[in-house]
Each structure stands twice: as structure tokens, then as C-alpha cells.
Lab assay of single mutants.
Amino acid sequence: VKKMAKAIMADPNKADEVYKKWADKGYTLTQMSNFLKSKTAGKYDRVYNGYVIHLD
């Protein structure tokens, strides 16, 4: 998940494709939050927020 999150950060155009894969795998927002937690607070906030919007 972190590898794909980094791919989104490097190229935001990949976001919809990645979010669809995550949704197809049934990842919940709680799971995504836990996967994307980082020592650098807020590092993956943009990715998480994008997934929230995708699921909505």
C-alpha cells in the first residue's frame, strides 16, 4: 500500500487507478489509515483524503 501511495504522490494522475484497486480489494478507511501511518505526520494525508473522496 505504501508503495502505491508513494506512486500517487509522485504522479497524482495514477490516483484513480490505485484507489479503484484498493476499493476492489475491500480496503476500509481504517485499514488505509493504519497502513499509511508514518513517523512523518501528515505525509500521506493527501492520499488518504483522496481515497475518502473516491469511496464517497
Score class of each variant (00 low, 15 high):
1 V>C: 09
1 V>T: 04
2 K>P: 02
2 K>G: 02
3 K>F: 10
4 M>R: 04
4 M>P: 03
4 M>V: 04
4 M>W: 09
4 M>L: 11
4 M>G: 08
4 M>K: 05
4 M>T: 05
5 A>K: 03
5 A>L: 07
5 A>C: 06
5 A>D: 03
6 K>F: 07
6 K>G: 08
6 K>A: 12
6 K>S: 09
7 A>D: 10
7 A>N: 06
7 A>L: 14
7 A>R: 10
7 A>P: 02
8 I>D: 03
8 I>Q: 00
8 I>M: 07
8 I>P: 03
8 I>R: 01
8 I>H: 01
9 M>N: 06
9 M>Y: 04
9 M>F: 07
9 M>I: 12
10 A>Q: 11
10 A>P: 03
10 A>N: 11
10 A>R: 15
10 A>M: 13
11 D>A: 06
11 D>K: 06
11 D>L: 04
11 D>E: 08
11 D>T: 04
12 P>W: 15
12 P>F: 10
13 N>F: 10
13 N>M: 12
13 N>Y: 11
13 N>D: 12
13 N>V: 08
14 K>F: 09
14 K>I: 15
14 K>M: 14
15 A>P: 02
15 A>I: 04
15 A>L: 05
15 A>G: 06
15 A>R: 07
16 D>F: 14
16 D>E: 14
17 E>N: 08
17 E>Y: 11
17 E>M: 10
17 E>I: 09
17 E>G: 10
18 V>E: 02
18 V>T: 09
18 V>G: 03
18 V>H: 03
19 Y>I: 02
19 Y>G: 00
19 Y>P: 00
20 K>F: 06
20 K>C: 06
20 K>A: 10
20 K>Q: 12
20 K>S: 10
20 K>G: 08
20 K>W: 05
20 K>V: 07
22 W>L: 01
22 W>V: 00
22 W>G: 00
23 A>V: 09
23 A>F: 08
23 A>K: 09
23 A>P: 00
24 D>Y: 08
24 D>Q: 13
24 D>W: 08
25 K>L: 15
25 K>R: 13
25 K>N: 12
25 K>M: 15
25 K>W: 15
26 G>F: 05
26 G>D: 02
26 G>R: 05
27 Y>N: 00
28 T>L: 04
28 T>S: 09
28 T>W: 04
28 T>E: 02
29 L>H: 06
29 L>S: 08
29 L>C: 06
29 L>T: 09
29 L>R: 09
29 L>K: 11
29 L>G: 05
29 L>A: 12
30 T>F: 14
30 T>L: 13
30 T>D: 14
30 T>K: 13
30 T>M: 13
31 Q>Y: 04
31 Q>D: 13
31 Q>F: 07
32 M>F: 04
32 M>H: 01
32 M>P: 00
32 M>V: 13
32 M>E: 01
32 M>L: 14
33 S>I: 10
33 S>W: 15
34 N>G: 12
34 N>W: 12
34 N>V: 13
34 N>E: 15
34 N>Y: 13
34 N>T: 11
35 F>L: 12
35 F>I: 09
36 L>S: 00
36 L>F: 04
36 L>W: 04
36 L>Q: 01
37 K>D: 09
37 K>T: 10
37 K>Q: 12
37 K>N: 09
37 K>G: 07
38 S>V: 07
38 S>I: 06
38 S>G: 07
39 K>H: 12
39 K>T: 13
39 K>C: 10
39 K>Y: 09
40 T>K: 12
40 T>P: 15
40 T>N: 09
41 A>F: 10
41 A>L: 12
41 A>V: 12
42 G>W: 05
42 G>R: 05
42 G>L: 05
43 K>D: 05
43 K>H: 05
43 K>C: 09
43 K>Y: 12
43 K>Q: 09
43 K>N: 05
44 Y>S: 01
44 Y>C: 05
45 D>W: 10
45 D>H: 05
45 D>S: 08
46 R>P: 10
46 R>K: 15
46 R>N: 13
47 V>I: 13
47 V>L: 03
47 V>C: 03
47 V>W: 04
47 V>E: 02
47 V>N: 00
48 Y>V: 07
48 Y>L: 15
48 Y>H: 03
48 Y>M: 11
49 N>V: 11
49 N>S: 10
50 G>Y: 05
50 G>H: 04
50 G>A: 05
50 G>C: 08
51 Y>C: 02
51 Y>I: 03
51 Y>S: 00
52 V>T: 05
52 V>P: 01
53 I>L: 14
53 I>V: 13
53 I>H: 13
53 I>D: 11
53 I>E: 14
54 H>T: 04
55 L>G: 01
55 L>R: 01
55 L>T: 04
55 L>Q: 03
55 L>N: 04
55 L>F: 04
56 D>S: 15
56 D>F: 14
